[in-house]
Design a protein around this nucleic acid. Sequence first.
DNA 1: AATCTAAATGCAACAATGTTGCGTTTGTTT
DNA 2: AAACAAACGCAACATTGTTGCATTTAGATT
Lengths: 137, 137
Amino acid sequence: MDVLQQIRDKGLKVTPARLTIINELAGSHMAYSHSELETLFSKMDRVTLYRILKDFEDAGLVHKIVDVQGVTRYALCKHSCPDEHHADEHVHFNCNSCHKMFCLEKVHVPELKMPGGFKVMGLQTLIYGLCKNCNAA
Amino acid sequence: MDVLQQIRDKGLKVTPARLTIINELAGSHMAYSHSELETLFSKMDRVTLYRILKDFEDAGLVHKIVDVQGVTRYALCKHSCPDEHHADEHVHFNCNSCHKMFCLEKVHVPELKMPGGFKVMGLQTLIYGLCKNCNAA
DNA sequence: AATCTAAATGCAACAATGTTGCGTTTGTTT
DNA sequence: AAACAAACGCAACATTGTTGCATTTAGATT
Ligand SMILES: [Mn+2]
Ligand SMILES: [Mn+2]
Ligand SMILES: [Zn+2]
Ligand SMILES: [Zn+2]
């Protein structure tokens, strides 16, 4: 199914701004910050960008993740998650040098034992270090 | 060793504001946000509070952690980490309801296999759900 | 105990990030 | 083509965090 149809299926209109954003996100396995997208598409209105990301998130097209530094980022949901439990349970990698964030959908996260009293509903694993590019340099 | 001496050992002066903050943090295993502390100690200057937290972090008395919502939080370092590798490698729990964050120093985090290319330097595990209080209610 | 000085504080100003309201424009349906 | 709800653009605002600078204070020195 193509992105265009995905957007419409969620009850959202297909607009140039939305296409621009979704195409950028679809082109990589990276999680983009608002400011990165604002730089890439500098003629786009700030507020519109915030709303597009929010709408995509609500629609389940995109997931939001906060990086080690506290910057919130957005990435395309690849594995067509079910709507009900739309948890992006995959691992993310955060580069200490270029600060890019990568979605690692294939890394398996082992279970862990929780102490009593807490009701666990989900888990985030955030790995940090150097990405391929920065490690080479 | 008492907090007072810990502060002095790091080359920091012991001031009323610093004592207030460190005592609050020492009283629980929770990670406090700036705004929570600002509410608790409303006569304290905002900037002073930011600087105290920064100084404590640099001194290794406190560790900083960003919660699921992107709020940065501070908690006392209990296990007297070595200065060089001052990584707060323990698990944190974030309550979806009251949004409090708890340091779980005793939960063991299993290793995981990384794909090639990335140089792993550390890892954060963030569990979310309901805390004891909110689960009971 | 009085003096000294670097560190810490308080305040104002600013920057970055995110939100809300509202009038205008546009995508989609009829 | 017309109609309408959705999306947009812009201004205004809120929150979070930073910086510069004048004043105060902790702790060391006399
Ligand atoms: Mn992801
Ligand atoms: Mn902690
Ligand atoms: Zn990198
Ligand atoms: Zn709770």
